[in-house]
Design a protein around this nucleic acid. Sequence first.
DNA 1: CTGAAAGCGCTAACAT
DNA 2: ATGTTAGCGCTTTCAG
Lengths: 325, 325
Amino acid sequence: MASQVTIKEIARHAGVSETTVSRVLNQPKIVNPKTVARVKAVMKELNYRPNALAQSMRNHTTNTIGVIISNVLNPFFSTLVRGIEDTATKRGYSVIVCNTDENPEKEMQYINMLVDRQADGIILASTGHKLDYHAIVGDMPIVFIDRKPSDEDYKRYDTVLVNNEEGSFQAVDALIRRGAHRVNAIVSPVATTGVERLAGFHRALKEHHMRISEQDVALDDYLGYHTAELALNLIQTNDCDALFCGNNVILMNVLHVLKEWQITDMQLAVFDNQPWFDFANYPIISVDQPAYLIGTKSMILLANHLAGQAHSVTHDMVQAKLVIR
Amino acid sequence: MASQVTIKEIARHAGVSETTVSRVLNQPKIVNPKTVARVKAVMKELNYRPNALAQSMRNHTTNTIGVIISNVLNPFFSTLVRGIEDTATKRGYSVIVCNTDENPEKEMQYINMLVDRQADGIILASTGHKLDYHAIVGDMPIVFIDRKPSDEDYKRYDTVLVNNEEGSFQAVDALIRRGAHRVNAIVSPVATTGVERLAGFHRALKEHHMRISEQDVALDDYLGYHTAELALNLIQTNDCDALFCGNNVILMNVLHVLKEWQITDMQLAVFDNQPWFDFANYPIISVDQPAYLIGTKSMILLANHLAGQAHSVTHDMVQAKLVIR
DNA sequence: CTGAAAGCGCTAACAT
DNA sequence: ATGTTAGCGCTTTCAG
């Protein structure tokens, strides 16, 4: 708490009413230029700064938005957040960052918190467990990112999603073209993305007329506690020569296994791309998601919505780009 | 905006005064249990949620803190943010994240924004350009992290800093023990950390009685636009066989150069540690900063301060840990 | 062009 | 144990 100087003070010092001071702030054109000058002088002299809280109270708008993701530690999400933050700042919004760790309860708590704080809107990578969003947030706008919401919510809310199926297809296709004979997959069970990436995986196998077996796929837990043993199991049991990893966390854990067991002949592909892949001791085929772009796009959608631009529900599907190494 | 149901509504439905409702919320013990039950029933029925904005207005506390860092894209900072966020959430605070990109103007704008929004406190990795923080924030508490503030501010504000000098010493020392004959350094010009890391570098050279030359050190720009040419210049001009990189961004850029020029015999050390270093195609000596811990510690300090715990100014210096690869 | 008064939703004296 | 009243700092009718 710094600003104890209020509009009242300014009014007194400038010899005008509080109303006039407020008008100088918000609609200076309708007030006498001389008065404006005087009031502004006083404001500067007293180092006045309007109390945003009080303004929010009156205006029913906080210029605050919430971003709910699973984890900023994941570079995919931190990039996303940066895209959002940059765009938000340009438009006068502040960003509250919330990490769910894929825990639906946390997600709900954060949403409630944002509602309580009268956030103007939410950008949400949902955990995917059915919540009645509309019942909780009322008419607060939400933009769903990364994970597709339920059909009902899809009709109601904007989305910015990645073409997971196609990206995964390309990655696995690339593995096979490079000579892989048996490709296995480890994907995260996260709603929609896991399923979609698996679909791409399957399509690639199918197009290459390769055998598709249930046991060639492992479902990771989100936190990656068991990736290592899952990977080892696939490798040892199935004798696969290529692994498709559903995200960068999984890849990292797989690399640990390969290192520990000194496996040097595995081909790797991963959904998501990180700069350090260029320097890894394996040639990593990756799928580059435009994370920053997803951030900016979602924030622009949200801001447009908040600016009251009449617009129907918008769905943006961005493409991921294959990176061969 | 979701909650249009206010205390007034609850009061009316429960047949009590607004005050009573408020008391049920804040000091239920001093109100008749029967009344509490009735009011709570109504609150549940109407799905009442207190307007945090109005509470903040009255209580002069927003349960919001600002975190000002240079860039969440840097994994050091995203880890820091996660540490802060976890601790903040546990204590009921929300976190507004601000990226300065080492731009002092942005820093000031963010600080002003946080003051305007009546944030309860700030955790700040300052750009290091002298600002009169106290004049801007008044009695709002600040915890300085990562970068040491001016002497004056150091006396006034809490800090959580890393032992940059010692960590850097150890890294360079390790390089030399491993057989490096000429170690060069590229560090970021960021206030205090750059200088301190360079000091450690120099101490290591000195202890090993190695020649110390001005031209063995390159000062990077923050954004790393010129790291590549600086590195190349050091390598070609000085014929060094080891490079000490001041942070993970610099290291990444150096790796690019080494790859492009197919230089395979360079020894590398870097201040900061990232998981992927384990899988890099160079053995990387690194200095592991406890970023998450810095986050939790700084948030705890801030929260304690806000809880009104009488405490003198606290300075916490955490140690970095050498990782040999 | 300017001001008086009411109120956003909540809480804290100060009664009773 | 409960209610009345005032007010946080600002904006917005409605009158001059």
